[in-house]
Structure formats: structure tokens, C-alpha cells
Design a binder for these strands. Sequence first.
DNA 1: GCGCAATGATACGGAACCGAAACGGTTGTG
DNA 2: CACAACCGTTTCGGTTCCGTATCATTGCGC
Lengths: 115, 115
Amino acid sequence: MVALRPLQALRLWQQVCLAEVRNEMPDLSERQLAILLTVYLDPPPHTVRGLAEKLKVTKPVITRALDTMGAMRLLARHRDEEDRRNVLIRRTVEGALFVERFGDTVVAKAGELAP
Amino acid sequence: MVALRPLQALRLWQQVCLAEVRNEMPDLSERQLAILLTVYLDPPPHTVRGLAEKLKVTKPVITRALDTMGAMRLLARHRDEEDRRNVLIRRTVEGALFVERFGDTVVAKAGELAP
DNA sequence: GCGCAATGATACGGAACCGAAACGGTTGTG
DNA sequence: CACAACCGTTTCGGTTCCGTATCATTGCGC
């Protein structure tokens, strides 16, 4: 667990949100970010329907987010050879770097919080 | 400061984002949330231009966000009596409750993180 | 009183996003 | 083999958001 007081939690959120909206960080929507972090933090395999269930959104939402983040090279699609109905969503080098930097930013903002 | 390791930071972000997109929490855009937290965490006075500068967005963005969050009673507009060109953005009871609950959710998710 | 600048709001065109419906392809079953 | 079920993608109509341009009001200096 991480010990975090309510005011610290809110301040942390504010600072990271401000960094995001000021374009200090690339601008992904909430859902895109949730998808991205899930792919990079949760163990594979990741499928469109799995992600849709996890986020409680419809599959086309995932498809479109994959389109967008695929174009940014943050994620990649691969057809599942064992069942070609499935698309497996994989990590990329660029995506891993993006997620690492995001994590570093959050850590940095946390470090600036009053005790 | 708050001691947070990169993986914890990312996990925290993931869990709160997932809670948000699953509608466990009301769905505000990143910018709306940044505006809301700024009004509730930073000392007044808050003006449209001040918020626009802080977020590095244009004034109509703030106006629209105020429309949306005003309708949700999370924020209120008051014309500044000393200079009637200004609109002062004030806190509301509902907004304070919302922000408090948001903070509690973040704290709860932080409490679930692996050490 | 006038001209100018500042304020926030409104209108406009465009981009991005949503869910529902539809579609084409693949797999499992009888 | 035919059909149902499943998959992800595409289309559709609607909503929300963006920046730019414009507007009405207010304040200030001359």
C-alpha cells in the first residue's frame, strides 16, 4: 500500500492533469490511457473483447482506440494464429517508453507534494 | 513529498482511470477535472482568463467547461462587483462533496497498491 | 465623451468520441 | 456441410469538445 492523504491525492491528481492538458504530456483520453495502462501493466493476452469488458465499453470503442494509439505506435495488433477471429494487442517499444515517462512524471509530481 | 515508485504510480493511475471510465465515478474530461481541482485546491479568486492561462487553453474552453460543470452544480459563476467584466468562479457544496469523494477514491486505490 | 483594450460569452467549422447496427470472416457443433 | 456463435471492423447518427472569430459590456486614459 501507499500512504496518501486525501489532500495529497487531490493535489497529485491536479498536478498530473494540469501537466497533461498543458501538453507537457501527450494528450490521450481517459479511456485511451486506461487501455494503454492495462495492456502494459496487466499480463497478456489482451483482446478487444477483454479490454471492452474490463473498461465496460463496447468493442468499437476499443477498435477505435487501437486505431488511434496504433497510429502513434503505442500499441500493435496481431491476429491470433490459434483462433483467427481474435486480435491480440501487444506492447511496442514506443509505448513502453511512453508509459515509463508517464510513470516518471507521476512519481515526480508525487515528490513535490507537501508532507 | 510522497514516496511512490514508478510501478505504483502507474498502477494507481490505471486503477483510478478504470474506475472513472467504468462510471464508478462521474465522467469529467481531463480538462474539466483539471479546472475543478484547481478551483477547489488553489486559493481564490478564479477567473476565466486565469484558468485559461493555467491550463494553456483558450477562454471559450473554460466558458464551456463552466457551462457543463455549472449544470452539474459542481461550480458556480458570480459576476465580480468591483469589475463587472470579470466572472468569479466559486465552489459549491455539491462540488466540494464531489472532490472529496474523488480524493477518497484515489486514497482507497493507493491503499490497495502492492508495497 | 471618445477610442481603445480587456472581459466573458456566443457562433462557427471541424475533430474526436460514443453506442447501436450492420458486416465479413472464422470457428465450433450437430 | 449448414448453421449458429463468435470475433473485430465499419457505418451511422448523435454528442461533446476544440480553436478562431465575433460580439456586447465594462473599464481606463486622454
